[in-house]
Simulated scan of single mutants.
Amino acid sequence: MSLGADGPSDPSTADTLRVRSQVRGPCLLVAAEGELTILTADLLREHVLAGMRGLTPPPRVVLDVGEVGFCDSSGLNALIVIWKAAHQAGGEFVLARPERRFRAIIERSGLDRHLIAHPTTEQALDALAAH
């Protein structure tokens, strides 16, 4: 979902996030679609952390954010928590398909020094599978 400067045109889609995951080789691939906000950040964080517990260590997680239209500070915090959990377990957490707007948020926050982003999901999976 892409949002304009004024936000979503349909208020029923505001502050919704759909999250689904699948295991691909040694990696957990999580796809998020919607808005990553104070109202949805807990959903993403808990979904990913639960998925990580089901992986053979070390956890390797790809978060596909190509369909995330907005991310606020609570969303950034959820990404930090996931990144820290993966690294504390000796694993990796990377992003896939961040759109220009999402990349700008990551860069402005300084998180781009920690959160590696790949242009495609397949590139992200390949990078983690090689570790």
Rank of each mutant, 00 (worst) to 15 (best):
L43Q: 15
L39Y: 15
E67C: 15
D126G: 11
K84M: 00
M52G: 05
P8Y: 06
L79E: 05
T13C: 06
P11H: 07
F102W: 08
V48R: 05
D42F: 09
E35P: 04
G4D: 13
L79Y: 03
L49H: 07
A96F: 00
G66R: 11
L115Y: 00
F93T: 01
H87L: 14
G4Y: 05
S12G: 14
R100N: 09
A130E: 14
M1R: 01
R45L: 12
T120M: 09
Q22E: 15
G91K: 01
F93N: 00
T40P: 14
E122H: 12
F93Y: 05
R45I: 09
L128H: 05
G51D: 03
T40F: 14
E99W: 02
T121C: 13
I105S: 07
G34C: 12
R103C: 13
G4F: 05
I116G: 00
T13P: 03
A5R: 07
R60F: 08
T37Y: 04
G69M: 03
S9G: 12
L79K: 04
L55I: 12
L17R: 13
R24W: 06
V61N: 04
C27A: 11
G66S: 12
L115V: 01
S109V: 07
A86T: 01
V94D: 00
R103I: 07
A89W: 06
I116C: 02
E46T: 15
R45H: 14
L55S: 13
S73M: 04
L63T: 12
